[in-house]
Amino acid sequence: MGIKRLARDAVLTAAALTIFIVELQLPELVPIPGVKLGLANIVTVTALFTLGAPDALAILLCRILLGSLFAGNLMALLYSLSGGLLSFAVLLLMRKLLTKKQLWVASVFAAMAHNLGQIAAAILVTSTPSLLVYLPVLTVSGIVTGLFTGLTAQYAVGRLKNVLKK
């Protein structure tokens, strides 16, 4: 890995971490586990669509790991990882199906996948299948937040493509 690439990915990881930590300070919107804006995913989506899968995955994993360390919530690592990896897989799949102007669509489906992965992990960990009742609510929240992060990422990709690719 070249120094330039390393530095660029590190800056993006730092940006994602900052967004993640700031979002933690915001008051909860609803007391449902798993409902959050997921603003740090703007960086994941932007990285994937400008730099490609390996860099984006590295940034995502570093952010999840350091994020749960900094937040003092290592127990949440499992949920973040399962949600993060599933949504990344969906992003990869959707990337092939979309034009540049439809980038936000990938983010919407990725957000839904993220919440699905989190519920699956929670069901496995707590052995409580009835947690599935949260799936519809989390799907609604995933669509809304995914739309927001997706549109933001789409604008960011448009602006940053040339800067980041250098």
């Binding site: 007391p31 586990p33 937040a71 949440a76 929670a122 960990v125 409580t128 009835s130 947690l131």
Partner: peptide, 28 residues
């Protein structure tokens, strides 16, 4: 760390359980 279980408030006649994911605790 997240206090989601506390913020849930009262569980009363609802199919949705209270969950404390960090402690792996569920009330239904």
């Amino acid at each position: 760390p997240d206090k989601v279980c506390v913020d849930f408030g009262w569980l009363q006649d609802s199919a949705a359980p209270i969950v404390c994911l960090p402690h792996r605790l569920v009330i239904k």
